[in-house]
Write a protein that binds this DNA or RNA. Sequence first.
DNA 1: CGATTTAGTTATACTCCATAACAATTCGTC
DNA 2: GACGAATTGTTATGGAGTATAACTAAATCG
Lengths: 190, 190
Amino acid sequence: MAGFGAAIPFSMSASSRSSRSSPSSRSPRKTRDTLAPDPATEAGGFDPHLPDVDYGVLDNLIGYAIRRAQIRLYEDFVRSLAPWNITPPRFSALVLISRNPDLKLTDLARIMGIARSGAVLLVDALEEMKLVARRPAENDRRAFSLVLTAAGRRTLEAATEAVCDHDAKMARALSAQEQQTLRALLARLA
Amino acid sequence: MAGFGAAIPFSMSASSRSSRSSPSSRSPRKTRDTLAPDPATEAGGFDPHLPDVDYGVLDNLIGYAIRRAQIRLYEDFVRSLAPWNITPPRFSALVLISRNPDLKLTDLARIMGIARSGAVLLVDALEEMKLVARRPAENDRRAFSLVLTAAGRRTLEAATEAVCDHDAKMARALSAQEQQTLRALLARLA
DNA sequence: CGATTTAGTTATACTCCATAACAATTCGTC
DNA sequence: GACGAATTGTTATGGAGTATAACTAAATCG
């Protein structure tokens, strides 16, 4: 889930494979054959609310209304960042590194709500893309200060523009006043 | 990510481990020792908006406002379902199976936006928990009709109550009128 | 009937992320 | 100032979720 980089662990008990009697009783596996290349990818674009489906309580929950909106926005958000090979967590990291001087890897992890080990991987990727550099921190020889490279600044600028365009496009059905209302209501939840 | 059971693939290029010069230059690994049991879990509860942090553009995007609200709701949502070992996708599946008679596994996959293979695992888990049963479908010996067991109905009823309580708790800061407004605005996005 | 499609399944692999352990360093406290 | 505790960055390992591809049995369509 991620998206912002949040934890949202959601792990719980594994549901290990179970033996089960199948409708058409199993028979021994044959060897490869390959007749039809299997029709294009499954599970493509996802419509969070199909007609002719009874969603029961799900339709009554504010949480699901938010979830649905988030799903719709998210897919397009990812697409708008794809040209730079930037994922949402990477975008968040770039913004945070850009705006918070002397940010340490541990700070980044805390802010984004991920484990330090995850932040290492994230920064590794950004460093390999030459967008971020680890610079020895002053006063602490254990730590790095994270900084954007020149390329990182350029990429962030371009990606930011794309993201803002995307956001404006998504919200264009709402007036400025309505957007303000939406923001205020969301902020008051929970 | 899931949560509702949505796809949201979000995969792209893997950021393979890179060689990197560390701040304190590496030395050979020693064997086990175990001194301190490492302080409680990292990446615990996540605050989507810390003070003293500059979030830059992120604070201006409607998409992030929604994302943040969703994150806050989600953690609590998961906790409210935990007593029954029900995850959000499992809850969605139970509701959908309950409300849509004669639902097939493939239908479930399509509605939830996951691959059929994923639906198999989901239904496997629910069947192992004795909440759902595969019943041979009429007129099609390939397919199952998914149905709730008596235990499944009881569990769904209890979990639904917990979920509704949770949702009401989250939205209690908003008047009925405001909740309606929020719903309407969310529906008009994208 | 034969070709194609569909439902359910399995195997495999990938991605993201957490936990745990660790070395080097810093901090707190006497 | 020395020593135990905490912190920083790191690696190894593994788990959960989901996708892709291939497959069997059955239905459908010409």
